[in-house]
């Protein structure tokens, strides 16, 4: 069976430094307009099956949100394939993309910025649907569907005529979920959907998302930095660092036997109200390098307590270490260097 989403060697670069005139300069008698390139995503591959939840975790700047927004085709990828139901949508134009958007929708992080403050809730929720039907749908039909969606996410009909600012953060996130559901998608890309919410509201939204998944058979690409949330919601977990996928495994395998030093550091750094996970503690020094100048070899070597010469010389690739469990680390070949 073809997977719901199959991402192959996805790369995303952004040029920064302003417009042409801001970059113009003269050097040795020649006119130059150099570009600075941010290497946000550097060859990421993964698949999501129907009804499956894949979580991408990592710290800010690791490229997980960029992956999400590139797959949602908010950005056009620099290279790579994005296969939805087996069909590559990476370079589709606006018109060909429209039917794909009915299969794939997105939930955003910021409940305040993700809803147009000047639109009424009913117009917000109906927008993707109206785009799909190009206005042919009967008004009454759209209204019925909108109200049904609002009811499904726990809002009522009288909310439909209000503006976003009249709602709390959790309620706004429900509106965003209703909008994503309006076209009956099979895949939902959720970019940190609960990280801006209070703890008690987080649980409400996570429960709603899980109920919807069971009811509608949704697959999620779930972006998060919160490991306890990821552990709760994900079937598989991909760990990203500096635009690379460093480890990808089924949830239980990843939390029980993390292999990449970065994954291990993340797990031991996460504060918890319960007993610490049974993971040898790895404390990282320093901070994430700039995506403008990627380190040679392994992206993680500048912070890795185990790094040695090979890590500078050679970039590790993902290799299988167990059932469906892949890791990009030279320690796999030379386990004797793991001193913990």
């Amino acid at each position: 069976m073809t997977p719901m989403l199959d991402v192959r060697s996805l790369e995303q670069e952004f040029a920064i430094g302003g417009g042409l005139f801001d970059r113009l300069r003269f050097e040795r008698g020649r006119v130059l307009a150099p570009r600075k390139i941010v290497h946000a995503v550097n060859g990421v591959s993964f698949t999501i099956n129907r009804g499956e939840v894949l979580a991408l975790v990592g710290e800010s700047g690791c490229g997980k949100s960029t992956v999400a927004k590139t797959i949602a085709r908010i950005y056009r990828p620099t290279s790579g394939e994005i296969r939805i139901d087996g069909k590559d949508v990476a370079i589709l134009g606006h018109r060909e993309m429209l039917p794909v958007r009915a299969r794939m929708q997105m939930i955003f992080q910021d409940p305040f910025a993700s809803l147009n403050p000047r639109q009424k809730v009913r117009d917000i929720v109906a927008e993707p649907l109206l785009e799909q039907t190009a206005g042919r749908a009967a008004r009454a039909e759209v209204t019925d569907r909108t109200l049904a969606l609002l009811a499904r996410v726990g809002l009522n009909a009288e909310h439909a005529g209000r503006y976003p600012h009249q709602f709390s953060g959790g309620q706004r996130q429900r509106i965003g979920i209703a909008r994503a559901l309006s076209v009956n998608p099979a895949l939902i890309i959720a970019d940190e959907p609960v990280s801006a919410l209070d703890v008690s509201i987080q649980a409400q939204i996570l429960n709603l998302m899980m109920d919807l998944k069971d009811e509608l058979g949704l697959a999620y690409l779930f972006i998060s930095h919160d490991l306890s949330v990821v552990h709760h919601i994900a079937d598989r977990v991909g760990v990203m660092y500096l635009g690379f996928m460093v480890e990808n495994a089924p949830r239980d395998a990843l939390f029980a036997t993390p292999r990449h030093p970065y994954t291990r550091a993340l797990l031991s750094a996460a504060p918890t109200i319960r007993e610490k996970r049974d993971v040898a503690e790895i404390e990282l020094s320093g901070e994430v390098p700039s995506a403008l100048n990627l380190p040679s070899g392994c992206c993680f070597r500048t912070r890795c307590p185990f790094a040695w010469g090979r890590c500078t010389a050679e970039r590790p690739t993902l290799q299988a270490v167990g059932d469906d469990h892949t890791v990009a680390c030279h320690l796999i070949d030379e386990p004797e260097r793991d001193r913990t």
Binding site: A72, H94, M106, F108, Q109, S114, N116, E127, G176, R179
Partner: peptide, 25 residues
């Protein structure tokens, strides 16, 4: 802002995004 990105994900053309989402704001 994410509401503009949401409009892209909804499938709106640039012109419509500018008219319906950016202009009023």
């Amino acid at each position: 802002k994410e509401y503009v990105q949401a409009a892209r994900v909804a499938g709106l053309r640039d012109g419509k995004i500018i008219r319906r989402h950016i202009l009023p704001n």
